[in-house]
Amino acid sequence: MTSHKLMMLVRNKPGVLARVVVLFSSRNVEVESLSFVPAGHGDLSRVDVVVGLREDRTSDQLMKQLARLLDVVHVADVDSAGDTALIA
């Protein structure tokens, strides 16, 4: 298991946290820690999450799956600054 630290910006829409968390469980991703705090002007929240992935999995795939969620505005792997998935 390798830990990856992800940072997300999400819209404050009903169910957004549930959708993110369910994605982790249905994609077999272990959540080691998670925080959810207001960001921006009240319309966004920031999610900081540390996930555990099997050695052969990269965070890239997971970030793309997270970015696919409608209310996820931004996902980044904090440790590898280059890996950023941005959604309009």
Binding site: G15, S26, L70
Partner: peptide
């Protein structure tokens, strides 16, 4: 139902 279908919908809306 919105929670039940979370992993099998692209998105869901609950109208308030």
């Amino acid at each position: 139902i919105a929670s039940i279908t979370l992993p099998i919908t692209k998105h869901s809306f609950q109208v308030t």
